[in-house]
Write a protein that binds this DNA or RNA. Structure first.
Lengths: 225, 225
DNA sequence: CGTGATCTTGAGGGAATTCAATGTCGGTGG
DNA sequence: CCACCGACATTGAATTCCCTCAAGATCACG
């Protein structure tokens, strides 16, 4: 895996403006209505195939988007955290379902008024395009995860989590082992075993199953390839 | 695998206008310069990290986009065939390399002039967004491939090929076993074995390794889940 | 017809899954 | 307060699936 850790090529430079900065960077005109909602853990934000009326930004907490396959298997497509925008659909329908991984606050933006605001000389059209381009990047990144071994996937995942955490090498996982398994395309047992492995090899430290300190980031990086 | 075969939700409806119809549907203004080039099998169209000067449309033949991972492993991200547009980058740099799978003709469109033409009330901005949204769809579809068993991946792949073939159930694979393996995240041996399996079970018929007739599409569909 | 590239087939081994049991944590009620 | 319960996580053993390594077979082309 080239993996999330080192390469975020082309796009990264361009996406700073809005990704992470959220909708603020867009300087939305006043006619675009927004409001904030609060969600409890596991609350559904929208279901797959529902009409896509809104676009969202995570204010606090973590959100997961996923797809349920025939056979009931759940594939988590993305975790979104503070500053991430999700639910932007080109077509009028959400292609994935989303839920709160933990208690969340999200900013809700009316999709229609957002798109309307995009028509004139504003840079909004370009930003809508950018947001979708970011999703392509994420999806391709994720794709590369899935052709790796369990160890490599976990290592890359932990680095990803560590990177987006404020405290560098200390990570509080918002998601359960099952969530991680469904994101990485593994079973919960394999995730657990591999975490234990990392711990035994002193690559990470787990005070609780959700609280991880990365002790040897270099080793993680090596393993993530 | 839910797979490419049955679900192409939201987007499909909206994308008819341009996807498959190619750039014609865009009614490009005259200042957008285009020309056609011909490529031999395995010829490079552009490399990863090169400046993205052009956007392309497949006129005839099949093109592959791919990424080479550390360790030399090649992951094919997409196969593009007639009518498909590829190489549209939001940032100024190609994130993937592309090559001709077989002899090809491709339409070359200047990216800069295309984007310039997108500014006014034209629908081009929207179309650029759409094209990127289509890539998201493809990437997510592909992602779902990769969490499946070898048999499921192959079945889904063959259905995908059959769908885009003119003659319904008769497929002439443009790509080698190695290409298929690199697309599906399998080894060439596993691809070969699984194809032989399908053949022995009378699900497909192989007169040559590249020419496949789907004898039992229902079985393929069942296996692809 | 020979040569290299592509594809197929086989045997063995390794990695992840499945099935099953045990362990841990947080909360709730006695 | 602590005993119990359910959700979540870990561990173990057996099995399955795919990969690796190796050898043939087939095809395309000079």
């Amino acid at each position: 895996m080239s993996s999330s850790a080192q390469q975020q090529p082309a796009l990264a430079r361009y996406s700073e403006t809005i990704v992470g900065a959220g909708f603020k960077a867009l300087n939305l005109p006043v006619q675009v209505s927004t409001h904030v909602i609060r969600l409890r853990r596991d609350a559904e934000i929208y279901g797959a195939n529902e009409p896509a009326e809104y676009v969202y930004e995570v204010i606090s907490g973590v959100v997961r988007s996923y797809k349920v396959l025939e056979g009931g298997q759940r594939q988590i497509v993305n975790f979104y955290s503070t500053g991430d925008i999700f639910g932007l659909e080109f077509g009028g329908v959400y292609s994935l379902a989303t839920e709160a991984v933990e208690d969340c606050a999200v900013l809700v933006v009316n999709r229609h008024s957002l798109i309307s605001a995009a028509s004139p000389a504003s840079s909004i059209a370009r930003q809508l395009w950018l947001l979708t381009a970011v999703e392509v990047d994420r999806a391709r990144q994720h794709m590369l995860f899935l052709i790796k071994t369990a160890e490599e996937r976990l290592a890359a995942f932990l680095l990803l989590m560590a990177k987006s955490s404020t405290s560098g090498l200390e990570v509080d996982l918002a998601m359960s082992r099952q969530d991680i398994a469904d994101y990485l395309g593994l079973t919960i047992e394999t995730v657990s075993r591999t975490m234990t492995q990392f711990s035994k090899r002193a690559i990470i430290e787990m005070s609780t199953s959700r609280h991880i300190v990365v002790r040897n980031p270099a080793a993680l990086k090596r393993l993530s390839k």
